[in-house]
Amino acid sequence: MNHGSWALSTPRLRAVFIIMALVLLAGAVFVPAASVPAADDEALERRVLEITDQLRCPTCQAISVKDSAAGFSRQITGKVRAMLKEGQSEDEIKAFFVARYGEWILRAPKKQGVGLILWLLPGLAIAAVGGWVGYVAFRASRRGEDEPEGGRHGEIGEAERDRIERDLRRFEEGF
C-alpha cells in the first residue's frame, strides 16, 4: 500500500489539509488578538488581589477580603475590580472604603499619626532590647579586660582559698 500517494492524491484528504491550514491560520490571526485582553485581565486581577489583601473582611476574624469567601468580601472584591476598571487609583479605592468603614477596614495602620507609632514601636523595642544587651555585653567584656591575670582572687576569702587548695592536694594525692 502506497501511503504517500494515497495521502496526497485523494481530493477529500486535500480538502481536509486545506481546512486544517485555514483553522491554523485563523488561530494564528485570532489568538494574539484574544490574548491582549487576557493579559489585561491578568494584570487587573493581580491588582485586585493586591488591594483586597490590604482590606479586612468585615464579617470574619483577622482575614483579608482576598482570603475570604464571605458575601461581603465578594462584594468588596467586585467593587475594587469595578473601581480599577474605572481607572481609580489604589489610594482612591482605599479612601472609598475608609470613608464607609473607617480605618478599621485597612489591615495595616496608616504610616501617619497614631498609626506611625504602631509602625515604629516594634523597631524601637528591638533597638532598645538590642542596645541593652549590647551594653551589658560590653560591660562584661570590659570587666574581663580589667581583671588581673589569674582572676579576681579578692572575691574569695583567704580561708576559702586555703580550703580549695587543700582539697585539690587531696584530690591529686588520691585521698
Binding site: 468585615p58 461581603f72 462584594q75 468588596i76 467593587k79 469595578a82 464607609r100 468603614y101
Partner: peptide, 13 residues
C-alpha cells in the same frame, strides 16, 4: 448583587 447600597452604608452584617 454587587451590594451597592450595603457597601455605601459600610455594612458589617
Amino acid at each position: 448583587e454587587a451590594g451597592t447600597i450595603g457597601l455605601d452604608y459600610g455594612l458589617y452584617g
